[in-house]
Nucleic acid binder design. Structure first.
Lengths: 127, 127
DNA sequence: ATCATAAATTTCGATATCGAACAAAATGAG
DNA sequence: CTCATTTTGTTCGATATCGAAATTTATGAT
């Protein structure tokens, strides 16, 4: 938990000036790199509940950073995509984010990073 | 994050029947094993802000699981200690908790657990 | 003794976050 | 086709959680 807090803490701090929470950032980043996604898909991606996704996407929509559209062929599903301000924002913020993650992780050598990934993968999937 | 979620998720699930959140449990557990602590000390221990500790201790106090006393020699500080129902509850819940952590962690061998601890310690302290 | 500063806690305002209950839409069995 | 079931998302009620401002108490310098 301490390692996790330290890492996400630094990530969160760099998002503050842009008034983004970690979840909001994660949603923007997911769409930025994967293209428009369903709320369900976003939930799976950022490891949050569907109920929570409703709230987070609401807040992003209020800020005009994303747009919601119903699918024509399955009207239960919502397609979440970036607006141009949203695209501009994440395009500006993401590089700094990548730098920070990079910097935090350089506490460990390449080999150690690989080891850590392997161990956490085991622990995370339970296999 | 996935590893952290899986672990804390299982911990949280076992606390649900007793209406305890993870933070509430962490506070009870800390006092149970270390004796009465200050809210500041509790915050440092469970890695949460002082503001948050006020809320968590409030909820535990409402349930009569802990007691708050001001120190006589420094009335700014609050001493948080277990009531007898609190002691009974944590005494009952903790063993199950330990089992679950144990079970989750046995996905990794002893050696792997040591490795993981060492790597996370580095990452967590930034050294 | 007095006052500026520091420390511990609380309050405030804003989101996050979840589980459960609900609504709407799709699907599949007969 | 029709109804039960499943899927997707929303709403509701509760707590967590933080940073910043406020409050109370202690401390140290003069």
């Amino acid at each position: 938990m301490r390692a996790s807090n330290r890492t996400t803490g630094q990530i969160h701090r760099q998002l503050l000036p842009d008034n983004l929470t970690q979840s909001q950032f994660s949603v923007l980043e997911a769409i930025y790199h994967l293209g428009p996604l369903t709320q369900g898909e976003l939930g799976a991606k950022i490891l949050k509940s569907n109920a929570n996704l409703t709230t987070v996407v609401d807040s992003l929509e209020r800020k005009k950073l994303v747009r919601r559209d119903r699918f024509h062929d399955d009207r239960r599903r919502v397609r979440v995509s970036l607006t141009s301000p949203g695209k501009a924002l994440i395009g500006r913020v993401f590089p700094r984010h990548a730098e920070i993650v990079e910097r935090v992780m350089t506490v460990l050598s390449e080999a150690e990073q690989e080891q850590l990934m392997a161990l956490l993968k085991k622990l995370g999937t339970g296999t």
